[in-house]
Amino acid sequence: MTETTALPTAFAAIVEDFTALGPNDRLQLLLEFSQGLPALPERYADHPELLEPVPECQSPIFLLTEVDGTGDDAAVHLHFSAPAESPTTRGFAGILHEGLDGLTARAVLDVPADVYNRLGLAEVVSPLRLRGMAGMLGRIKRQVREKAGL
């Protein structure tokens, strides 16, 4: 069993991309994910109160999980608000967005809570920052469970 076996295809590909690189290049890839984070949709841009803060992150980040339907097969969509001057936090949000957005509720809930460890970023990012990514994933999963009725 490889480290990516239990991961959704998109997330497994991200893990493979990170682990194929050396430490400095991993940090660069994280910054690229920060630049690829989609903007918050208009319907939420004027309503920040609808987004949940992630206090585990050292930088201010807010997220909202939309779930289309109920049950294991409900489609999940992720939205994040993070300042451009927080590239590490935005990078983690970008990874979660690319790896999880559009998946079923069950697929999101089955992602291991420590998936951030598989990215090989512990060499270049502080444990406090990695805890922020874990906080984001934990909130996403809780919102999915609540909204999908699981």
Score class of each variant (00 low, 15 high):
residue 11 F to T: 12
residue 13 A to G: 03
residue 13 A to C: 01
residue 14 I to D: 10
residue 16 E to P: 06
residue 16 E to I: 04
residue 17 D to R: 15
residue 18 F to W: 07
residue 20 A to M: 02
residue 30 L to Y: 01
residue 34 S to A: 15
residue 37 L to Y: 11
residue 38 P to W: 11
residue 42 E to W: 06
residue 48 P to Y: 07
residue 50 L to P: 01
residue 50 L to Q: 14
residue 52 E to V: 13
residue 55 P to F: 08
residue 57 C to P: 10
residue 59 S to L: 10
residue 61 I to W: 10
residue 62 F to T: 11
residue 63 L to T: 09
residue 65 T to F: 10
residue 66 E to V: 06
residue 67 V to K: 11
residue 67 V to C: 11
residue 68 D to E: 15
residue 70 T to D: 08
residue 71 G to I: 03
residue 72 D to T: 13
residue 73 D to N: 14
residue 73 D to I: 01
residue 73 D to F: 00
residue 74 A to I: 02
residue 74 A to P: 03
residue 75 A to P: 01
residue 77 H to L: 03
residue 77 H to G: 04
residue 78 L to M: 05
residue 85 E to Q: 14
residue 86 S to H: 12
residue 87 P to Y: 01
residue 88 T to P: 01
residue 92 F to W: 09
residue 94 G to C: 08
residue 96 L to I: 11
residue 97 H to Y: 15
residue 97 H to I: 00
residue 98 E to M: 07
residue 98 E to F: 03
residue 100 L to S: 09
residue 101 D to E: 10
residue 102 G to M: 00
residue 102 G to K: 00
residue 103 L to N: 04
residue 105 A to Y: 00
residue 105 A to D: 00
residue 107 A to E: 13
residue 111 V to Y: 06
residue 112 P to W: 02
residue 112 P to F: 01
residue 114 D to H: 12
